[in-house]
């Protein structure tokens, strides 16, 4: 059992506050992704869990044990670094065996575990090589194998795929997901790549400016962003936003059309819709097409609604040219509303 509890963890570097009182619970064997733009504090949070950084305040618990004052080696974790951190003076075999030798395991056990994890990561033919003789992808595999060989309660990964080329990243992503699901460890994975986050995570914690804005399943984060930031950060292209004003009849007016809004909402809200949740029909938002990008399966239409940038993902059969007037109807159950002041979702 390795449930991770983070209670009120904050971190300041001088006058800069990297993390504002983070509370997060990660279940045993859960795959949690920390997602955010660079500088949002995701790596700092990971390093605090690893013990490479100490929190200014707050507590970290791993598997029912408080660990925030313990050194990394006593936390039952293994970590995969962004730059792999494969020891250049040791062979691949000795790299994978490094942690096991520190645990003083008998040679037979070391050998079994090294062979098993090397096989798992498809690097059994590289065991005698040195780091300098490996490609980036192979080094990545060694780093993961080294972490897995420890059979840790928790695996921490800091942007492990960001230094690989696009194709290799895709391949490794699928492989990692499979390997980690079988290893039955709790995983915390830091990335700025939302596709990686969506495809790997059981749950995503979206971070911004040292706060966790939302922690939920990938689909939930995508469909029901808890805050405007999540909607604008996740999804490619991101959500569309338009100002909305409540009328006397209780409905909200958005760029000339009236829509049913939330009953709790104030007089002014922000209307939000994903580009793919728009259809062409009469009585919709009046949009002037500006740029047409056929993407094969769909066509991305960048347009202007009420002078604001507005994107729609439409069927590629649609014949549309720059300057055309379109009437875009939002799917009623996919419309989201955000408070203008707090940026939080309003239901």
């Amino acid at each position: 059992m390795a449930e991770i509890l983070i209670k009120g963890v904050a971190k300041s570097f001088g006058s800069f506050t990297a993390l504002h009182s983070i509370d997060l619970t990660i279940a045993d064997q859960e795959f949690m992704v920390l997602l955010g733009a660079s500088g949002c504090g995701k790596t700092t949070l990971l390093r605090i869990i690893a013990g490479l950084e100490s929190p200014t305040q707050g507590e970290v618990w791993i598997g029912g044990k408080r660990v925030d004052q313990l050194p990394p080696r006593e936390r039952g974790i293994a970590m995969v670094f962004q730059n792999y951190a494969v020891f250049p003076h040791l062979t691949v075999y000795e790299n994978i065996a490094f942690g096991l030798r520190m645990k003083k395991l008998p040679q037979a056990e070391v050998d079994t575990r090294v062979k098993r994890t090397a096989e798992l990561m498809h690097i059994e033919q590289l065991l005698k090589r040195y780091s300098g003789q490996l490609s980036g992808g192979q080094r990545q595999r060694v780093a993961v194998a080294r972490a897995l060989a420890m059979e840790p309660d928790v695996i921490l990964m800091d942007e492990p795929l960001s230094n690989l080329d696009a194709l290799l990243r895709l391949e490794m992503r699928a492989e990692l997901k499979g390997v980690l699901a079988n290893s039955k460890t709790t995983t915390i994975y830091v990335t700025h790549d939302q596709v990686e986050a969506m495809s790997l995570a059981d749950r995503i914690s979206v971070m911004n400016g040292g706060h966790i804005v939302q922690a939920a399943s990938p689909v939930e984060v995508y469909r029901n962003p808890a805050a405007r930031f999540v909607g604008s950060f996740i999804g490619n292209p991101p959500m569309n936003f338009l100002p909305a004003t409540r009328n006397g009849d209780g409905r909200y007016h958005v760029a000339g059309i009236a829509l049913d809004g939330p009953s709790q909402g104030g007089a002014k809200l922000e209307f939000a819709i994903r580009p793919e949740d728009l259809t062409i029909a009469a009585g919709g938002l009046k949009a002037t097409a500006r740029v047409i990008e056929p993407l094969g399966a769909h066509t991305l239409v960048t347009s202007e609604v009420d002078g604001k940038l507005f994107r729609a993902v439409l069927d590629s059969d649609l014949k549309v040219a720059p300057g055309d007037e379109l009437s875009l109807v939002p799917k009623p159950d996919r419309v989201r509303w955000f408070d203008l002041e707090t940026s939080k979702a309003v239901n």
Binding site: L52, P72, A85, F87, F98, M102, R146
Partner: peptide
């Protein structure tokens, strides 16, 4: 010597002295 190498050694069971001895010193 990248600090990450030392950090990796710490997460793999070394204290600061052991990490220095086993990773930094040979390099």
């Amino acid at each position: 010597i990248p600090l990450e190498l030392e950090e990796a050694a710490w997460t793999l069971g070394c204290n600061r002295l052991q990490a220095f001895h086993k990773v930094v010193l040979p390099l």
